[in-house]
Design a protein around this nucleic acid. Sequence first.
DNA 1: TAAAAATTGCATAAATTTTATACTAATGTT
DNA 2: AACATTAGTATAAAATTTATGCAATTTTTA
Lengths: 226, 226
Amino acid sequence: MFNVTKTHEITVDVVILTIKNNNIQVLLVKRTTEPFKGRWAIPGGYIRLSENLDDAALRVLKEKTEVDNIYLEQLYTFGDPLRHPNARVITCAYFALVRDDDLSITSTPELGWHKVNDLPSLAYDHKEIIQYSLKRTRERLELCPVAYQLLPEKFTLTEMQKAYELIMGKSLDKRNFRKKALATEGLIELEEYTKSSSKRPARLYAFENIELNSKRAHFIKKEKNK
Amino acid sequence: MFNVTKTHEITVDVVILTIKNNNIQVLLVKRTTEPFKGRWAIPGGYIRLSENLDDAALRVLKEKTEVDNIYLEQLYTFGDPLRHPNARVITCAYFALVRDDDLSITSTPELGWHKVNDLPSLAYDHKEIIQYSLKRTRERLELCPVAYQLLPEKFTLTEMQKAYELIMGKSLDKRNFRKKALATEGLIELEEYTKSSSKRPARLYAFENIELNSKRAHFIKKEKNK
DNA sequence: TAAAAATTGCATAAATTTTATACTAATGTT
DNA sequence: AACATTAGTATAAAATTTATGCAATTTTTA
């Protein structure tokens, strides 16, 4: 009875989402070993004995990116016996929302961003995991302005609306969106405006570090040390 | 590296909730072995190699109860290194909503229902898991009438309101509740009334087997074979 | 058998939230 | 100076939610 469990392995996988070039993109790694050698996959790893699951997910994330300001939430645990072709691997999946301008990864042939609407063939059940993380992100967005985790630190309302439209997958009315956005708790109106654009300057906004109305969320806040 | 994972164990634990005697109650088992020998715990077990996680949770549930008509949803995976005193056990927790009148368990000194508002001292982090399942149930109830999984098959609107009030932890206005309840998709008005009560008879209602607006839900429907 | 107690069942007005809709303002470019 | 482009704004209608009071049916009991 006990031995039955000994052959299980458990991993964490992390769906890392950002908005780049007006697309929701996910960070993928190319597998260098079997199974699924050469296929793209979401980053993952084993859980160390001293780590809790959040720490393990955060470590996996930090192995691939150098970001401080992230939203990280446990997504779901996937454990179909056939999800791994030659072992029983249960994975506790997380998803992270990161800001493009906080990112410093160097795309290589083995690591890169992919549009979630145009994914390559993926290893394991990773496509399902990504789809599910998008669904969860939409659900979160209906409860709290979690999209600000995907925006630059200072942003215009138009940029915010674009992020919402990308995540929700539909276009929104500008006037109603702005009215609602301005009523959002934690939104700060700055006395700054966009400059370099060749159009009318837009006011910039920011979010204070608010307690989001999230259910399972963990926030790793940026250390403001400068 | 690989060996590091070999010492992890993974289990499923199931929070089984019902409404009995106008209280939300949870099914607990008394541990017969160390650790936490003699303490109450939620039912759990190892995952078999051939099972997916839902199947494992369902099996654990069926080992304790004989119910057909249940709501079962993955809750969260708990993996703090210290949650188990002398091993690294990660548990994928589920919660189930079952109908009191579908239940046939025989309470023994080792198995019994406990009011969630008056829990005994529990093993591991099981108190946290139960609290979290209550929170999730409240969240679900705001999205879909999942409470009908806790009601008898035929129920009065007053009974339905009582269930909502118990779960949400607040009293609701009768007139507004009835208006909203009557507008709920899937609610069927029966041509039957309560009898044995010593007051004015109340109309009975039922729910058709609807697709609930749930996110991670799995329904094990009753087999109507009679 | 009449009154009382308990619970069912219903309707409407007020407040709030959501939705729908069109024009003016500011800036750089030509 | 006219044009192109994006920023920015107000209001009415519709829908939803909340608040509130009273009549009807049945059993109990006086």
